[in-house]
């Protein structure tokens, strides 16, 4: 088991190197000379050439890339072209805000989506189910930025209940988290319902009933744990998706997180900053995936057995 976890952590390193290459290549393809971008259109050609050499941009692409990777692994992601401040520092300051927002939104999605999904499945074809699935369909089709603006109009402008921008207090997180979570609620509701409906029809559920078990214990003790296994995976991937979704929501609500930073950096063509943000988000996604896989291996005896058995030398008992 430990061997498996270590293996999974080590795999992250080459994956990150590849991701860096992709992002680096894309940034390379964007038009504009870095030194010219920094100094502006009025700067003399001499000054631009001078800065190009200083930045190391006179060297070939692969050399610069290798240099970037080596520095990145020591925590040096270069300096912002706009402010001259350390990219690593800037991202690090904003990262907790983004994570807080994503976790809050995901918690909402999990706490609302999964129970509603279970209810829809248990009361299949009832009013609950109808309302639940219709709600999910609507929520899945509403773009989060539009919803965000509608929520601002209602709760901030009309009712004056909640702030529409910034991150001062807990109240500031409510609207952005709600608008981010709606689509995720829909995804989790529908997915939980599907897996739950499937599990309720399984033979082992009938076996449990045949033992004389109470219906709610049959549903929550037998069907639910089995249904939740795939839901955990989806929750994880949705969380990762959310880390990408912060860009729009942070922009709409003027939240000073990584999403906002990446958005502004793109507008200002601040290449090191964009790179830094993208790599940070990618690394978080990878870590999240790792956590899901480990959690999964711990709670599903079938998967756990596969790894412990593999460690023992691949001998199956059957």
């Amino acid at each position: 088991m430990i061997k498996y976890v270590i293996k999974r952590i080590l795999i992250i390193i080459p994956m990150l190197v590849v991701v860096m290459f992709i992002i680096y290549s894309i940034m390379e393809m964007t038009p504009g000379e870095p030194a010219r971008l920094i100094l502006g259109t009025n700067a003399s050609q001499e000054a631009v050439d001078q800065l190009t050499i200083e930045l190391g941009y006179d060297r070939p692409f692969l050399v610069r890339y290798a240099d970037y990777v080596v520095n990145a692994f020591t925590g040096d992601f270069g300096e912002s072209w706009q402010t001259g401040r350390s990219v690593f520092q800037e991202v690090l300051i904003r990262f907790p805000t983004t994570i807080k927002l994503a976790v809050f939104a995901m918690a909402l999605a999990v706490l609302i989506g999964i129970p509603l999904g279970i209810l829809s499945a248990v009361k299949q074809y009832s009013v609950f189910d109808g309302v639940g699935t219709t709600f999910a369909m609507v929520m899945a089709s509403v773009p989060s930025f539009w919803l965000a603006m509608m929520l601002i109009i209602l709760f901030s402008v009309k009712l004056r209940l909640l702030p529409s921008f910034g991150t001062g207090s807990f109240a500031h997180y409510i609207l952005p988290a709600v608008s981010m979570s709606c689509a995720e609620i829909a995804v989790l509701l529908r997915f939980t319902r599907t897996t739950m409906v499937e599990e309720i029809r399984q033979d082992y559920v009938r076996t449990a009933r045949a033992k004389g078990q109470k219906e709610n214990k049959v549903v929550f003790g037998h069907a639910l744990p089995n249904a939740l296994l795939p839901v955990i995976t989806v929750t994880g991937t949705e969380f990762c998706g959310m880390l990408g979704g912060v860009v729009t929501i942070e922009t709409v609500f003027s939240i000073n997180g990584v999403g906002m930073l990446i958005y502004n950096s793109i507008l200002q063509k601040d290449v090191p900053m964009v790179m830094g943000c993208a790599i940070f988000l990618t690394a978080s996604v990878m870590l999240m995936m790792l956590v899901i896989d480990i959690v999964y291996a711990f709670i599903d005896p079938r998967i756990k057995a596969r790894y412990t058995r593999a460690a023992k030398g691949g001998k199956a008992s059957e």
């Binding site: 033979d203 082992y204 076996t207 037998h222 744990p225 089995n226 709670i299 005896p301």
Partner: peptide, 13 residues
């Protein structure tokens, strides 16, 4: 029950 392969809960001992 008929099918022993599916009649037991896979995640309980």
């Amino acid at each position: 029950f008929q099918d022993p392969m599916t009649a037991l809960n896979p995640i309980k001992t």
